[in-house]
């Protein structure tokens, strides 16, 4: 039974596309057949982060409109056999996404893939709503700062009201988890950023992982390599832990970075 997972956030620039690339590559690395779809019509970036921008011929919108077959638009990753990318159009806009078209493409992808990762655009308009509509699970990407957290909260509200699972009688609600990215313990200690506990208290959903702020993320993006396929880094191992949790493994939550104690010991340090 394949799973549709939307990567969403509300706010822009928090790391949705980076996360979509890392999570999908991480799942493929574990042997799951995975496809990642770019829903950010008009502002396509996923193909660059995945390093396949020069191989794009047909795109998601072509498939929706019947101008191309899904097979023609899917780009197989050269590093991992199990991984495919469905890029989007740079010249169209979000109105090109129709609910029926999206559903048809997702249904066709379900036949081949175990995991379908939907990289949502920022905002809460059509593109974002289409990306989340058919999702089974959601990864809500949040930076530890107030505006990002508030936007994530808004998106969690939409996930519980404006999706197929929300509208269908008797369906389980979307399982939403929060992924905290750009976590910087030094800035949190200085009071410039929110703590993990504060974020979770406001969002009131389970934590999927904490990705540290790391130059490795930017470097990997610039090179078109998902961070988990690049050289080992704190961010890469944090993403790998998040993928493990996503498939149901129990992995201890670590605060990444070089010299940080684990969350648990820090929690005890605080409350004691």
């Amino acid at each position: 039974m394949s799973k549709i997972i939307v990567v969403t956030s509300g706010k822009g620039g928090v790391g949705k596309t980076t996360t979509s690339a890392a999570i999908s590559a991480g799942l493929a690395k574990r042997g799951h057949k995975t496809v990642v779809i770019d829903f950010d019509v008009g502002l396509r970036n996923l193909d660059m982060i995945m390093g396949c921008e020069r191989r794009v011929v047909f795109d998601f919108i072509n498939v929706i409109q019947g101008d191309a077959k899904l097979k023609q638009a899917l780009i197989r990753d050269k590093r991992l056999d199990n991984l495919a990318v469905l890029p989007t159009s740079q010249t169209r806009d979000k109105d090109a996404l129709t609910q029926e078209g999206v559903e048809a493409v997702l249904n066709e992808l379900k036949e081949e893939f175990d995991y379908i990762i939907c990289d949502s655009p920022a905002g809460i308009e059509r593109g974002a709503l289409m990306a989340m509509y058919y999702a089974d699970e959601a990864i809500v990407v949040t930076n530890p700062e107030v505006s990002s957290v508030r936007d994530s909260d808004r998106v969690l509200g939409l996930l519980q009201s404006k999706t197929h699972r929300a509208e269908e009688e008797g369906a389980e609600p979307i399982k939403a988890q929060v992924l905290i990215t750009r976590h910087d313990q030094a800035r949190i200690d200085k009071g410039e950023m929110m703590t993990v506990e504060d974020v979770l208290e406001i969002l009131a959903v389970p934590l999927l992982g904490i990705i540290p702020e790391s130059p490795a993320v930017l470097r990997a993006s610039n090179m078109g390599v998902p961070v988990v396929l690049d050289d080992p880094s704190a961010a890469a191992s944090a993403y790998e832990d998040a993928v493990a949790r996503l498939v149901g493994e129990q992995v201890e939550m670590k605060i990444g970075g070089e010299r940080r104690p684990g969350l648990i010991s820090r929690l005890f340090g605080r409350t004691a």
């Binding site: 508030r150 808004r154 509200g157």
Partner: peptide
């Protein structure tokens, strides 16, 4: 009750069990 959501009890009391977010 998440940011951006509005809950209206038009006739009587409103009870929320859980957090009510800013917004």
């Amino acid at each position: 009750v998440r940011s951006g959501q509005t809950v209206i009890a038009d006739e009587g009391d409103l009870i929320v069990i859980g957090p009510v977010s800013s917004g």
